[in-house]
Design a protein around this nucleic acid. Structure first.
Length: 931
RNA sequence: GCCUCGGUGGUGGAAUAGGUAGACACGCAGGACUUAAAAUCCUGUGGACAGCGAUGUUCAUGCGGGUUCGAUUCCCGCCCGAGGUACCA
């Protein structure tokens, strides 16, 4: 009987669905295990063979865990809000909900063909109101919370109000935008609006005027991780800096916890490192430089000093000037009247440059303010400049410049002819700065003679002891900008009263996305929600219709807590019930791509920590172990058209001609040989094409590129499933190489895996049909089986699925050679392979006479005693080089082994009568003779 | 620039505690079955040299050193590739 994979796969997919074989419930009698895939954004292009790679791996692991006695939660859903659907809507007028729904259907169809063991009853879609109700709910919790630095956790904002009422803000140590100082009496005398403004300074979800990444083409602001090299991640449009009032999340309050949390989780070192870089902790000192009074500009109103942050307090004696960011508040204090015109011109010119231009064009620019400040260590007066190489958003937006020991300051100093004072003995600063933290200090007063690390420590102590500033830790991580001027996203549960935002009552959630006539901004420049009719809210006992927020939430809002919702997806009372949260706790294994390292994976960890502070989640970290699957790239094929003709020349002959390289659809190329007949049908102009062949064939060139429609290298999983079956596709994707590694898809190797499945099938069949023998298994057969069980168990635990597939192939080849058809061997082997190739396993499992699904079986154990040999083919080496193998009894002593080796005629031939100087015998491993 | 991970046959890749380098598969070559093709099965397959031959010799895991009886594996210094990050003070 033939292996009819199409019939088998259809049959069992139907069976699994109808019987809800993969439905999961809380079961206290079993240990839980939570396996999660990063849910996909359902794009219009559908899945290509690269997408399911991670899903296959996680499915294998889930099935394995189930077979080893775990209650496995393995859900799937859709990250359904997003820009492409909205842009498509703008172009076509179709509601994004419709296109999204259509795409989801298509995704589901494709996924269903691959035999995944998802519990589809738990499906979530971020765009459904039942789901985003809880995104909105979490946002309100953040709005109603502040971060207490003493307790290192979020607390209700009501507690903060109590403190303000009792004693004012002086003893409050909370994460905030600006440190405010007021007494209880002052608080009490403030108006409602003033109080709300003060509280906004502390809320974890807060509204603030900040510098944001504004993308004019997209008409929206973007978070830092959505900007790559000054261009928008989506679309690649220029991004500029703008000051706007936006919702933000106080992620920076969690910087240290996000950093510390990395220690305890099982992620790859490189991913942790990426996050550490992104968080960017640096230890240093914040030092005050007094502004020289008579140089002060007219606009001086407050402090009279400039704060700077530095990690190199030791270099303070080398400060020859200071620099302010153009957007810095200090600018107004320092500009002298005679410099005003020039400074204004400079500020104007920097404002016009986009971030991209600043990066691309690093020419030195700057302007002197006319003002001076005093070095608190040396008492020396230094000029204060403005330049766009200092960033407003990091540290204090002002720096002390030490040109001798900082490359950027050096370039600036040389350009404007400012002095450079070397501070390290023997360093040469004639050509470039000396940035290394090594050497012995000079020209540095009381720091002279200390090494650099000693000097850093000493200088920081001096700052603290003399009240010149404070020792401080700075983070690069900024608060997340949480507003988007878009339609297709979660609406904010916020309304405005007297210009101040208030949260919608919990009972009125979700605030559903309203209908609009067009998905574009309004004529007055408001976001698309400005077009909605009746977009207002009336809180209880107030009949006034207050306007609702016009912005929507960004893409990462919906993906930040979806793993919690899967635990209890239909709960209308809570994001997740206490019972479900206590049982499932957190994700044990998370599989997905690295591209989310500084986006989703930071936001999710932040979101989870916030919910954990409120007692809603059990674990501080959401994803205990994370595996990054590599990208499957496309393998493109090329044809070479001779310039100015319609003649195509084969790869091997193309060097004789001037040709243009064109993509050929990989689906009409086999082993790099072009199907000319099909090629002619692809484009009208190809119909009459001529070909210069080699050996009667047209050979294509190839290259590895991203898998994309426009490059004609997309391979569709549906096509593979039809020709080879889902089990073959699953095995082949795993066989392709290590999971974490990126690799090009090349269909030609798939035959080997398909052949293996047919051989496997044949073990259970003779000419008549299904036949297995009930005779006891032979020793050799059991040994093959148990060797494979041991190998596959180890491989799955370490995610080395590629070598498991090899182990299966070896096993089936060896059993085939023995003509093994014993049930005692084939039954456990069926269970063993079922995580990888579930359809064929299920079919064989039933043919073997089992009534239940193979999912309910137990993963086979191996018997070590069967694997032990009584003798061992010991490799014998001479001077480290292995020459032959000698069977040696395992119980032989080392002396016996040495004697046996020396007595062997082959040894005598190789040594040609020479004396052995030394013999090393490692039992069970090797013998090495040195002569 | 800094950080992380890699570099093994014609190709994808094995070698999961320093111990037979190249498992398994693709491709290729030869053979069997077949009127033929497909499918299937068998054999060979890192390079060089020697031999009719079984076989033997020798070189090989990016390059150069080191530790070791023995290094793809550990250490030092380079080269190359991929990814992350970058006026972050």
């Amino acid at each position: 009987m033939e292996y009819n994979f199409l019939r088998i796969e259809e049959k069992w997919q139907k069976f699994w669905m109808q019987n809800k074989v993969y439905k999961t419930e809380i079961d206290e009698s079993k240990p839980k295990y939570y396996v999660l895939d990063m849910f996909p954004y359902p794009s219009g292009a559908g899945l290509h063979v690269g997408h399911p790679l991670g899903y296959i791996a996680s499915d294998i692991y889930s099935r394995y865990k189930r077979l080893t006695g775990f209650n496995v939660l393995h859900p799937m859903g859709y990250d359904a809000f997003g820009l492409p659907a909205e842009q498509y809507a703008v172009e076509t007028g179709q509601h994004p909900e419709l296109t999204t729904e259509k795409n989801i259907e298509r995704y589901r169809e494709q996924l269903d063909k691959l035999g995944f063991s998802f519990d589809w009853d738990r499906e979530v879609k971020t765009c459904s109101p039942e789901y985003y109700k809880w995104t909105q709910w979490a946002f309100i919790r953040m709005f109603d919370s502040y971060y207490c630095n003493d307790a290192q956790r979020a607390r209700p904002i009501a507690e903060l109000i109590e403190v303000f009422e009792a004693e004012g803000s002086l003893r409050v140590n909370a994460a905030c935008t600006e440190t405010l100082r007021f007494a209880a009496g002052e608080w009490k005398s403030k108006s409602e609006r003033e109080r709300q403004e003060i509280l906004m300074n502390y809320r974890i979800a807060y509204l603030a005027d900040t510098m944001v990444n504004w993308c004019p083409q997209l008409g929206t602001v973007l978070a830092n991780d959505e900007v790559v090299n000054g261009l928008s991640e989506r679309g690649g449009y220029p991004v500029e800096q703008r000051r706007m009032r936006q919702w933000c999340l106080r992620v920076s309050a969690y910087a240290q916890r996000l950093l510390d949390g990395l220690e305890a989780i099982d992620w790859t070192e490189s991913l942790k490192e990426t996050q550490r870089n992104w968080i960017g902790r640096s230890e240093g000192a914040e030092i005050r430089f007094d502004i020289v009074a008579d140089s002060r500009g007219g606009g001086s109103k407050k402090d009279g000093f400039i704060r700077v942050f530095t990690t190199r307090a030791d270099t303070i004696f080398g400060v020859t000037f200071m620099v302010l960011a153009p957007e810095s508040d200090y600018v107004a204090q320092l500009v002298t009247p005679d410099r005003r015109a020039e400074v204004d011109a400079y500020l104007e010119s920097t404002k016009r440059r986009t971030e991209r231009e600043r990066i691309a064009d690093r020419r030195v620019s700057g302007v002197f303010t006319g003002g001076y400040a005093v070095n608190p260590f040396s008492g020396k007066k230094v000029p204060v400049w403005i330049s766009d190489y200092v960033l407003a958003g990091y540290g204090t937006g002002a720096i002390m410049a030490v040109p001798a020991h900082d490359a950027r300051d050096y370039v600036f100093a040389r350009h404007f002819g400012l002095p450079v004072i070397p501070l390290v003995e023997g360093c040469d600063v004639s050509e470039e700065s000396f940035d290394a933290k090594e050497g012995v200090m000079i020209n540095s007063g009381f720091l002279d003679g200390l090494t650099v690390p000693e000097a850093i420590r000493r200088a920081k102590e001096y700052v603290r002891e003399n009240g010149l500033g404070e020792i401080k830790v700075n983070y690069r991580l900024r608060d997340a900008i949480f507003s988007r001027q878009r339609y297709w996203g979660e609406p904010f549960p916020i309304y405005y009263k007297d210009g101040m935002p208030y949260p919608v009552a919990e009972k009125d959630l979700p605030v559903e996305l309203p209908e609009v006539d067009k998905f574009l901004p309004t004529e007055s420049g408001e976001p698309p929600l400005g077009r909605a009719k009746n977009w207002v809210y009336s809180p209880e006992s107030d009949t006034t219709a207050y306007p609702l927020e016009l912005n929507t939430m960004p893409g990462f809002a919906g993906s930040s807590a979806y793993y919690l919702r899967y635990m209890d997806p239909h709960n209308s009372e809570a994001l997740v019930s206490a019972e479900a949260s206590k049982y499932w706790r957190s994700v044990d294994l998370y599989v997905g791509g690295t591209e989310h390292a500084t986006g989703h994976l930071i936001y999710s960890r932040f979101w989870n920590k916030f919910l954990c502070d409120s007692g809603l989640t059990e674990e501080d970290e959401p994803f205990r172990k994370l595996v990054n699957q590599g990208m499957i790239q496309g393998r493109s094929n090329f044809v070479y058209r001779i310039n100015g003709t319609n003649t195509f020349v084969s790869r091997g002959l193309k060097d004789g001609y001037k040709t243009t390289e064109l993509h050929a659809d990989v689906n009409i190329v086999n082993n790099d040989i072009l199907d000319i007949k099909q090629f002619r049908t692809r484009k009208p102009e190809y119909e009459t094409a001529e070909f210069i062949l080699e050996d009667g064939e047209y050979r294509c060139g190839y290259g590895v590129e991203k898998m994309s429609k426009s490059l004609y290298n997309v391979v569709n999983p549906d096509d593979i499933v039809v020709t080879y079956g889902a089990d073959t596709l699953r095995l082949y994707e795993m066989f392709l190489g290590p999971l974490e590694q990126s690799k090009p898809w090349d269909t030609k190797g798939i035959d080997g895996v398909h052949r293996f499945l047919r051989k496997f099938w044949r073990l259970f069949h003779d000419e008549e049909g299904f036949y297995v023998s009930d005779e006891p298994a032979g020793k050799d057969e059991l040994k093959i089986l148990h060797k494979t069980i041991k190998k596959v168990r180890g491989d799955i635990e370490s995610f080395s699925f590629n070598t498991s597939v090899s182990a299966f192939m070896i096993c089936v080849n060896e059993l085939g050679a023995l003509k093994c058809n014993r049930r005692a061997v084939l039954q456990p082997l069926t269970v063993l392979i079922s995580p990888f190739a579930p359809h064929i396993a299920e079919e064989l499992w039933h043919l073997l006479g089992n009534r239940t699904s193979v999912v309910k079986a137990s993963f086979p154990e191996y018997d070590e005693s069967l694997l032990v040999e009584d003798s061992f083919d010991c490799p014998v080496s001479f001077n480290g080089k292995t020459r032959f193998k000698l069977p040696i009894p395992l119980d032989a002593s080392e002396d016996d082994i040495k004697a046996a080796v020396l007595a062997d005629p082959q040894t005598q031939r190789i040594m040609k009568g020479k004396e052995a100087k030394k013999i090393i015998a490692v039992k069970g491993k090797i013998v090495n003779v040195v002569f």
